[in-house]
Structure formats: structure tokens, C-alpha cells
Simulated assay, not measured.
Amino acid sequence: MTVDELTEYDVVRMTAEEMQGFLSSHSVGVLGLPTEGAPSLRPMSFWFDGGSTLYLLYILGEGSRKADLSDRADVARFLVYSAETMFNWRSVLLTGTVDPVPESEWDELQAAVEEAWRPDVFRQAITDDNVRLYGFEIADQTGLKSAGLPPAFEKGATDDGGK
């Protein structure tokens, strides 16, 4: 089923402004990186600059696969979603590139990136030598939302097809 076919079920495309607001109000998503086999999917906290970049703080262990895959990726995906109820949900799928941010740019981004939500265990694990900042440059984005009841749940609908 295509996105356009879903409109009959109250699923609509989000506007650019809605996607920007959604990304600005969330801080966790899933990073998809290509591999030779199945894609590598990683839950990540992020900070959105309000324009075209997400910033991801990598906490690296020895031989970090996430950093290696990011460094080799020509293209990546990032999914941010929220599902308040089965009838009220939103998702934004981003396609772009992910690259290390030069350390010379870290100071201007540090406060905002550090404020991004992340599990406390990761905050505790941060040291000066195990952190790398990456920027996800958004090349394409698609947002979908459903904020209504399907036709069968609308007022006046009956189980007998309206008979």
C-alpha cells in the first residue's frame, strides 16, 4: 500500500514546518547504516539544529562498529517517531549523510548537544577520549501522521455497514 492510498485511513503527509517542529521537540530516533548484510539499526539521542542537521554524540568503545559503519556510509537513514495511541502517531524518515564534526566546531555546539536527552548510563560513560560528534546532514525527508479515527470508528458508524 502506498502513502497516497493511506489517506483514506486519515494518514497524511506532514508539511515541512510540521516536520521541523516534530524534530525540534524530540531527541531520540533510530540511525540506519548500510552493511553488507542487513542494515545496522542503532537507537540514538540527537539534537536538531532547526535547519538541516541532526547532531549525534557517539560514545565509542574499542573497535566501535557504529563509528566504522558511519565513516564508510555514503548514505544513511534516521527515523524519529511518536505513537501516542494507535490512532494518533507521527513519523519522520530522513535520508542523508553522516560525518564526523571537526573538533574545531565542537565548542559552538557543545551546550546544545549536551542538553539532548540520553540514558543516564551514557552520560556516566562519557570521558574526554571516548566521544565523537557526528552530523547527519538531511538530504530528503518524509513525514507522515495520523490524528484521526478510521472511518469505522467515526460517530454514527455501525457494525452492519450502516444498515
Rank of each mutant, 00 (worst) to 15 (best):
E5Q: 12
E5P: 05
T7E: 14
Y9W: 11
Y9L: 14
V11W: 04
V11A: 01
V11P: 09
R13F: 13
M14H: 08
T15I: 02
T15P: 09
E18F: 01
M19R: 03
M19F: 01
F22Q: 05
L23W: 00
S24I: 07
S27L: 01
V28F: 05
V30I: 11
V30Y: 00
L31V: 11
P34N: 04
G37H: 10
A38V: 12
P39A: 13
P39M: 14
L41A: 14
L41Y: 10
P43K: 01
M44W: 00
M44G: 02
S45T: 07
F46S: 01
F46A: 00
W47D: 01
W47V: 02
F48S: 00
D49R: 02
D49I: 00
G50C: 06
G51E: 11
S52L: 10
S52I: 05
T53S: 06
Y55L: 06
L56M: 10
L56T: 02
Y58P: 04
L60V: 09
L60M: 14
G61C: 10
G61K: 11
G61Q: 12
G63N: 15
A67P: 05
A67G: 07
L69H: 02
L69W: 02
A76D: 01
F78C: 03
L79H: 03
L79W: 01
Y81V: 05
S82T: 11
S82I: 07
S82D: 15
A83C: 12
E84L: 13
M86T: 13
F87H: 15
W89G: 00
R90M: 12
R90Q: 15
V92R: 01
T97C: 07
T97K: 10
T97F: 05
V98I: 15
D99G: 05
P102M: 03
P102Q: 04
E103H: 06
E105W: 09
E105N: 09
W106C: 05
W106N: 06
D107S: 11
E108N: 12
E108M: 13
E108T: 15
L109I: 03
Q110N: 15
V113A: 02
E114T: 11
A116V: 10
R118E: 03
V121D: 05
F122W: 13
R123C: 09
Q124K: 13
A125D: 10
I126T: 07
I126M: 12
T127R: 09
T127Q: 08
T127N: 07
D129L: 05
D129P: 06
N130R: 07
N130Y: 08
N130I: 09
L133S: 04
Y134W: 07
G135F: 02
D140T: 15
D140P: 07
T142D: 06
T142W: 02
G143S: 04
G143Y: 00
L144Y: 02
K145T: 11
S146N: 09
A147F: 10
A147R: 09
P150M: 09
P150Y: 06
P151H: 08
A152F: 14
G156F: 03
T158A: 08
D160R: 03
D160Y: 06
G162M: 05
